[in-house]
Design a protein around this nucleic acid. Sequence first.
RNA 1: GUCCCCGUCGUCUAGGGGUCUAGGACACCGGGUUUUCAUCCCGGCAACAGGGGUUCGAAUCCCCUCGGGGAUGCCA
Length: 478
Amino acid sequence: MRVRFAPSPTGFLHVGNARTAVLNYLFKKKYNATYILRIEDTDMERSTKESEESILNDLTWLGIQWDEGPDCGGNFGPYRQSERFDIYHEYTEKLLSSGNAYHCYCTQEELDAQRKIAAEANKPFIYPGTCRNLTLEQKKAFENQGRKPTVRFKVKEGITLTIDDQIKGTVIFNSENIGGDFIIVRSDGVPVYNYIVIIDDTLMNVSHVIRGEDHLPNTPKQMLIAMALGLPVPTYAHMPLLLGPDRTKLSKRHGITSVSVYREQGYLPEALFNYLGLLGWTLESGEEIVPVEKLVSEFELSKIGKSSAIFDFQKLKWMNSVYLRNLPFEKAFDLFYPYIEKAHLTASDNEWLKKVVDTVRGNCEIASDIVKEIGLFFGDTVEFEEDAEELLSTHEAQTVIRAAYELIHSTINAHNYSTETLGSIKQKTGLKGKMLFMPFRAMITGRLHGPELDKILPLLGYDRFATRIEYCYSRFAK
RNA sequence: GUCCCCGUCGUCUAGGGGUCUAGGACACCGGGUUUUCAUCCCGGCAACAGGGGUUCGAAUCCCCUCGGGGAUGCCA
């Protein structure tokens, strides 16, 4: 069995496409199939080399390995459509000479005008076949005007196209309502997606085409071409689309859609893979956080649901936090370090830094969170968050602040501060539990959330500890 | 407009005629553990789009309506 993932290099790898890539990969692993990576770069204006590189990069990061592709070759190459124009040209000639296609001299302006009229009349636009039977003289006349023809595929009426879809079930189209004769080669000679996918899929011996549902209405066109060319049709599996919270196709305005941004923010590839791989179906046990092997062993195209799914950013984050917490310390530290470095929060004492990271890592959902979490160990004064400020303004909190202030000016010093301060304040004020700890936490860290105070204090150092108390005293309790 | 796909808690889903007073997970709310945060544990909230059939019995099968999505490009 052979599957393929066929992105067009017109931007970063989108999570929706990444899901397609992941499911194809699950299929490959499950059935020991060959995974083909094909670059669909026939949109010359929008395709870029950088985009291709970043897509390959993101796929690799996600843990997807392909067997044949533009970078590693294979027996069915080349794997970039832009390098296969000779092949397509041959098929176009066949289609032309067998009468299945013809040259069309209609200009874009003319077609746009016809589309507009149809839209205003609330009718579907069907190409009327204007150029279907042009005489040689007519063609010459157009060419003398400087018109460059496109090539249109002739769609015969009354043909029933049946797709035996592995996810959607049987889907039937009739040839009369796919919009009439459609363009397969642009006027500049570059063939169009709908035409060459099917050629490449059969030439590359693809057995299972697993792709997004948005391609389902295009499938009959591709089948028609295959029929005219006498080529076999692969097995199809159209997966439901990924939607944003407003139920429209997932796009940038909904949040992060680019895999590279997830990587930059410190998501783990295992977590993204897990989330994407299990979106739309479930394991029999109901488990959600599972290794790839588990996903592979239970994967089945027929288990994928038919309805589209909304991308749940929150659940992905949760999943990532679980993966992050389960990471061994050294690995986690390596993951955090670049963010720490970028925020200039490194320290001369690396062992100290490691201890600091270890105490706060549990509060991180994604790796970049480390910057915010670690911040409380740096700086003499703290920035108070709104809720912390509110708490510190209360009467009870002020007694805590005063008690701490008095202590650093009497019995508490660098040797005993981390072990005795809280107990002494408790004694002095009679406060305990939340009433004691929360104001204290707010005073030292500026926040109501954070790691255990017992762990913070020894790492913070007496100087910062005392300075912060002084600062807090002057702001809230003077 | 036309064609195609889809419709169970807010979200991802389990379920495929009786075991469904509809199960799990995320989120949310409450409680417990932690003298504090988070983790963790326990509990709660919350759904079969609507209407007709078929059947002793329907979330499950059929039809219609409504709703959502996709396609309708010299994009992929």
